[in-house]
């Protein structure tokens, strides 16, 4: 495999651009070429966000199409489902288990989480569900959810990135207590991924 295609998705405001940037920098630190196509502007206002991350020896196109992703990482359960069409037939999906509802009257509670998980399990052999929001909340900062998923992704992508570099950069995000929680959240994500014996791409 000369390159890896990754979709990083979730809800605008969850820190997806930070996740993608850190992974791309870690890929660069490993000596690879990398492109990360971000979503800016209106979509960041609580809408669906999709970042296309590509790592490899020679990369040209900034995006890829349906059926071409080796990995989808999601910080929200419904966004994970929305990105399933990007996955190749043997693709890997790692997702937070939390559902975030849009503030459109009448939608709240319309989803049965078990049904969603079943739908995913029935289709994706390499599925990893992680209670990232719960982990972040228990560490004291619910906004560190992205760092938990970053930790998970860093194990799946360990052949494509410099994980030492990544750990160092994670500890530079935020100040004081926030920075410490981010670091812990990232480490917890890595432990969870190791305990799940995730596929390493």
């Amino acid at each position: 495999m000369k390159f890896v295609n990754v979709v990083i998705t979730g809800v605008g405001g969850q820190g997806l651009l930070t996740m993608a940037r850190l992974l791309a920098e870690a890929a660069m630190a490993r000596g690879f070429e990398t492109l990360a196509a971000e979503t800016h502007g209106m979509a960041q206002r609580g809408g669906s966000v999709v970042v296309f991350l590509r790592i490899g020896e020679e990369i040209y196109a900034p995006t890829f199409s349906s059926g071409m992703a080796h990995l989808v990482v999601s910080t929200e359960l419904i966004e994970a489902v929305r990105s399933v069409p990007y996955l190749r037939s043997n693709g890997v999906l790692a997702t937070n288990t939390k559902v975030i509802y849009p503030a459109i009257p009448g939608i709240y509670g319309s989803v049965d989480e078990n049904q969603v998980l079943e739908w995913l399990r029935a289709r994706i052999p390499n599925l990893y569900t992680v209670p990232a929001s719960n982990v972040a909340e228990s560490l004291g900062n619910p906004r560190a959810t992205n760092m938990v998923m970053l930790g998970v992704a860093s194990v799946i992508l360990e052949r494509w990135i410099d994980t030492e570099y990544l750990a160092k950069e994670v500890s530079k995000i935020g100040k004081g207590r926030i920075a410490e929680i981010n670091r812990q959240a990232y480490e917890r994500g890595r432990e969870i991924a190791e305990s799940l014996r995730v596929v390493k791409l």
């Binding site: 609580g46 059926g67 069409p85």
Partner: peptide, 20 residues
């Protein structure tokens, strides 16, 4: 390119951008 699934299940709700 053939993927895992091409159609989304009906439980996927829309997520338009919204006021923060």
């Amino acid at each position: 390119p053939s993927g895992i699934e091409t159609t989304l299940p009906s439980f996927v709700f829309p997520r338009p951008p919204q006021l923060c």
